[in-house]
Amino acid sequence: MAAEIVAAAITDVELMKASQIGMKALGAGMAVGLTGIASGIAEMAIGSAAVGATAENKDVFGLVLLLTVIPETIVIFGLVVALLLIF
């Protein structure tokens, strides 16, 4: 009887550990995914304005390409958080 309880407890602990790893992976995925969406939304407006500006004047291409990637910081932070979560 006692052995069974111990065995059940061990399985519970293992299950807990496994689900914790899963939760971590889930958290990491959400960190990258949600920040990715946020970056996308932010880049959407900049990108369309950038294309318009480039159509008017080709010289600004370098500058607007740069402005377009500025919101990428958000997803980079997400990626950093995810990496720290997993490793």
Partner: peptide, 8 residues
Amino acid sequence: LSYARIVA
């Protein structure tokens, strides 16, 4: 923290 992009 932005320099973390070098790694990421």
